[in-house]
Design a protein around this nucleic acid. Structure first.
Lengths: 217, 217
DNA sequence: CTAAGAAGTGAATCATGATTCAGTTTTTAA
DNA sequence: TTAAAAACTGAATCATGATTCACTTCTTAG
């Protein structure tokens, strides 16, 4: 017996892994999953292609990890909106949904990659986990709302899944093919739909076009 | 001497060519240029892969032709808007720009493919011709407007190119990466910008959100 | 310092999809 | 009916990018 992994090595590997993910994420933002090529990625990380396979068993596994890495970033943004202490739960949820949607529309290549780009089955499976994570987050907020009486009694797990499904649908539409409505219309309608669904009262959201026409006058 | 191409054969070849383009266009709408595979396309057309090469010298040439075919469809839509006899030129141009933008947002995979998907150089060159065709169309309308006095005197060629550039920019932004604004905001602002640019007077467009909130009340 | 055990390397191999081409079928004019 | 000239075919070949693996370098415990 001689070599044994030390914390120094563990940390170094952690950094290398992070480097790979960061560079892959940049490629994802530039041209989607199809833009991630093992040789290119290795070069950008200053590693040999073989080394990538010491960190990820296949390109599919790598793409899945990138997917999850990107998702965590988005999740954190949404989580931040859900934690605004000075606002009520319904408003926080509306903010979170809007943030989710706006970020998707602001980085559409990445959003398209995360939501609609045709990918291998393993990445599709990650998509399901991704929605699950969002649902969990929203479910916590809903539970909070129920406790503070700003939301009526309800099954928070069910509500949160419905909520994620509705907002994703509103984004998949505009980003993919077969929708009949327009992006912003779909988003505001969805947020309104979601909020009305969980508050069980009418809910009006501020329309970005109103801000625009105000500025221009 | 014996075989000589007859009109019967010429027509049959024309139909085959059209079949290829139609099937390729469907693939384009489904998953962009990367979704067009020679073997798949040949199968869908009930042809051998080699036959595709009798009609198009390479996949690149085929993609270019598909690009142009798709473009012609879009051009015809825009042209139809520009020909509405009962409306003034400025309104017709606004309608045409909106149509262009809306269609792009309604078929974003195709729009992304036509406007932003990374493609071979020959297809990029087709993009320039595509913009040129739009410019020509708008230039004709502008000239008409000048004659009927609904538009002030101006260089219609220059104006039309500026107009196409502005609206494309407003679409490339939302569909690609680095923009700061939202799709509908970008479109309405661009159409407003374009109309104000060519009419030299304030111009307000109807905001889709207003229709929405009206419906929902 | 040394040898076991990893980690890292990159050229060789494999898989996928574009392209070619030798052979087959179709079409035409005489 | 026939032979020239296409048109068509699809298996073979080529190109690109993922994956492997024999080898080298690094790290650690003794």
């Amino acid at each position: 017996m001689a070599y044994r992994e030390t914390s120094r090595i563990r940390e170094r590997k952690q950094i290398t892994r992070q480097t790979i993910l960061t560079n892959a994420l940049r490629l994802l933002n530039e041209s989607g999953f199809s833009g991630i090529q093992m040789a290119t990625l290795a070069r950008q990380c200053q590693l040999a292609t073989g080394t990538l396979y010491r960190y990820f068993s296949s390109k599919e596994a790598l793409c899945t990890a990138v997917f999850e890495h990107a998702t965590i970033i988005e999740i954190n943004r949404v989580a931040a909106q859900l934690q605004q202490a000075h606002k009520g739960v319904p408003e926080r949820i509306a903010d979170a949904l809007m943030t989710f949607a706006k970020r998707a529309l602001r980085a559409p290549v990445a959003a398209w990659a995360l939501i609609a780009e045709p990918v291998e089955p393993a990445v599709s499976a990650a998509r399901l986990r991704y929605r699950e994570q969002y649902a969990t987050l929203f479910a916590q907020a809903i539970d909070e709302g129920i406790v503070e009486r700003s939301l009526p009694q309800q099954n928070s797990t069910l509500s949160s899944h419905a909520l994620v499904g509705a907002i994703a649908e509103a984004l998949i539409g505009p980003l993919a093919q077969q929708n009949q409505y327009q992006p912003w219309q779909a988003i505001s309608a969805s947020v309104q739909f979601c909020l009305q669904a969980i508050t069980a009262t009418p809910y009006t959201i501020i329309c970005p076009q109103q801000e625009l026409s105000h500025e221009q006058r």
